[in-house]
């Protein structure tokens, strides 16, 4: 096992680590600064002045609200679907032995292992072959597909931690399958499912690549942002929206981390 850790990292390593972490974090912090800039026409740095007026402007924009509402709705339903499917799959894979278990794990991971554009275009062409018109539900279908893996990963990790004898003990004490699920399995995997659900929500809320292929004319918040990125119309509003997106995705991630911090190593390490 690991013996005593050395106390002092070499200076070069410290500098490289600090520089790497700064590179990862500073650009995101910049978003917070730009949300308050008074400059509307360019990305001038440093901002000539600071103001909170753009929050009011963004607040009164119906298109932002429509996109935000759509994104929240899609993320909620996709998360709920992924929770059901991911949990079922995790239960089957971890509680039973059957031929082809490995293949199932691979199948679940495939939608995020392949570049998003492939998932997106495959679904789009399938919709067109099946003559399914684009709708709210086509977006949900795409999102649920790649959210399953997040729930699955969290649930499988937790299932692995429930010792097999707990379930046997429950049955031994007179609980049938449903009672065992309700009184033993669910309480033990509950937080992992909640964490998985939060990460799935964050993933769906932020997704843009698959969505561009399955959304048709509707705009989720990321699609709205993408359009602003390609053809900037009102930069300050985009700045504010970017900041909101950062916050809305950070909260479930912190929550998921908090829920799984002792024990299962990875809440979302496998995005």
């Amino acid at each position: 096992m690991r013996s005593e850790k050395p106390n002092h990292a070499p200076l070069g390593l410290k500098i490289a680590t600090a520089a790497g972490l700064a590179f990862m974090h500073l650009p995101i912090l910049l978003i917070f600064l730009y949300a308050f800039t008074t400059e509307e026409k360019s990305y001038q740095f440093p901002p000539p002045g600071l103001t909170a007026q753009w929050f009011a402007v963004a607040w009164s924009r119906p298109d932002v609200w429509a996109a935000l509402t759509l994104s929240l709705k899609v993320a909620s339903i996709a998360t709920a679907t992924a929770l059901v499917l991911g949990t079922l799959c995790a239960a089957a894979v971890s509680q039973t032995r059957f031929f082809g278990r490995e293949a199932i794990s691979l199948l679940v991971i495939l939608p995020i292992a392949l570049p998003g554009i492939i998932t997106g275009i495959a679904l789009r062409s399938a919709f067109s072959i099946a003559e399914i018109p684009f709708s709210f539900w086509t977006i949900v279908l795409g999102h649920a597909t790649f959210c399953i893996v997040v729930v699955y990963n969290n649930a499988v990790a937790r299932f692995r931690r429930i010792s097999g004898s707990l379930i046997e003990a429950s049955m031994d004490l007179g609980a049938d399958g449903f009672q065992t699920f309700r009184y033993v399995i669910l309480p033990n995997i509950g937080t992992a499912l909640l964490a998985g659900g939060m990460l799935a929500f964050a993933l769906s809320f932020d997704e843009v690549i698959v969505t561009t292929f399955t959304a048709g004319q509707q705009s989720t918040l990321p699609i709205w942002m993408l359009e602003e990125l390609i053809r900037p119309r009102q930069r300050p509003v985009t700045n504010v929206v970017a900041m909101i997106v950062v916050i809305v995705t950070f909260l479930p991630i912190l929550g998921a981390y908090y829920l799984t911090r002792d024990g299962d190593k990875v809440a979302g390490a496998g995005k």
Binding site: S163, S165, L166, E168, A169, M171, D172, D176
Partner: peptide, 16 residues
């Protein structure tokens, strides 16, 4: 198992 009047003390105790 849940319909047998038999109970088990498990090796790892298996407390919930």
């Amino acid at each position: 198992p849940y319909r047998r009047s038999v109970n088990t003390v498990f090796q790892d105790y298996a407390l919930f």
